[in-house]
Write a protein that binds this DNA or RNA. Sequence first.
RNA 1: GCGCCAGUAGCUCAGGUGGAUAGAGCGGCAGCCUUCUAAGCUGCGGGUCGGGGGUUCGAGUCCCUCCUGGCGCGCCA
Length: 550
Amino acid sequence: MNHAEALRAEIARAARTLGAPDDIAPVIERPRDVTHGDWATNVAMTLAKSLGQKPRDLANALLAAMQFDSVGVASAEVAGPGFINFRLDPGFLARGLLPMLADPESWGKLDIGHGARVVVEFVSANPTGPLHVGHGRQAALGDAISTLLEWSGWKVDREFYYNDAGVQIANLALSTQARVRESVGDPVEIPEGGYHGEYIREIAQGYIANHIADAGGEDLDALREFAVAALRHEQDLDLQAFGVKFDTYYLESSLYTDGRVDKTVEALRASGHTFEEDGALFLRTTTFGDDKDRVMKKSAAKGGDYTYFVPDVAYHVTKWERGYHRAINVQGADHHSTITRVRAGLRALSMGIPEGYPDYVLHQMVTVMKGGEEMKISKRAGSYVTVRDLIDEVGRDAVRFFYLMRRGDSQLVFDIDLARSQSEENPVYYVQMAHARMCGIFRVGEIDASTITAQGVDLSVLSEPAEVELIKQLLDFPSVVRGAAEQLEPHRVAAWLMETARTAHTWYHKHHVLGEPEAITQARLVLARAAQIGLSSGLRLLGLSSPERM
RNA sequence: GCGCCAGUAGCUCAGGUGGAUAGAGCGGCAGCCUUCUAAGCUGCGGGUCGGGGGUUCGAGUCCCUCCUGGCGCGCCA
């Protein structure tokens, strides 16, 4: 139990002696204004009505009923309409740092998942082109969400779903074929809905070099296979450059070859939730909250194919059957209409899959500005900025941080020129610099930071305001991780990092560690070590490096 | 027309699941390197939290409504 939980428990105990219900869960929070103390509670105001007392009177009674010593409270007072402000003993507060020094690796980790399995699906780009900046946002977001879940006790698998079947792949093969033929002098005929990017030309060259017998590009199967393999390889390189690793790759095509799509359609038919109209097969998704029923299988006149959401349903059945009773999909907001459809399909199957399965984390669109103009992202037209372009421009850490420092549901404008010109002013350097400075203390002092313990050190000398602020900030980390994991919002960790870096820089500037009286130096080395651990923990959680010098 | 997401300082955005006088970065201005990294620190200026109602001790946060922007609403994926 940390000091905040201990304080909350003591407030609850005192409140019960005054007649509060047994299940009372007092809220404590860090006041914005430091003159309001280290912690504040509004419990007297929330209880006032039910106990029939004035908030301030109740607050005073609570104070009288509380035992301060056991929870490290040095002083407390009633303020405003009925807040109770608590001031903690500095030494007591600082001792909260002990666990992180004893075990830096596990600091900030919790067990709310109890080892249950969860699959996080993200990126899932069609193998029809390199990864663009929108995929980059997903890669950063999905990877960070996965790590957050790991830190909070879940057994996480990162999964990439390859849409390697269907119309777009056929167009890819035809586009490649056109470029192959172009190279032997035939006129170029990029098909309707085909891909015009320069990379198709490169793939065509590769195909020609590897398929001497098919110089005319007649073998469409071979073309498709070659192009998909080449683009998957490209995407792998992009992800590698970004430092994202997947545990599983699931191929849409396998859903067809192993009969799962047909099986799913049969099951849906048997469920009674389908009907035929105009020669097409429909799923009655309106039964499950959709605003219109959706076609599952096109009419013969339109080709008789399944629409995209049928394999999607089959795919999510495999997630459930593979033992993932929690699934999270990270997708662009332009896919939000699929949510209702996929969930409707899963519920129509009556397999016991719950209503909210799978979870979706939608992120808003990324727009790219270059030279003051918006660049339209279009794989088909071949104009876009790739993830690798960004990494080459500003570096992996900066790109990741840039993606993660804002909430997923705000639109992101990626200004290429700005990212380049600000590469030295990017907030990520600010955070990493704070870490490097802590490392610098140990380097100059010729001290192995990992040997620092609080054994025999009087931490009560860490009483300067800048020190108390830094300690409190560091102690916040576990609850930030918890909130970020529960809400699937990695940007909270980024915000915590920037705030922690700020307090660390201020402390570093105001107070010297080395060369002070022995007792001061010893205590401050403990704090420097704690800040080093804290910053590198947050950076690690977001997939960023923690340089020891810059 | 319907659904989802947004609208907070000049710009880009934070504001745990209602709390006290709404914050940061960038940009602007003025200072700080003989001591652990100046990729830093300190100070100043900057606000109708899109508009209007409501809920309550208290609203940037919750409810209603309107305005603006983005994304969806295919027998496309």
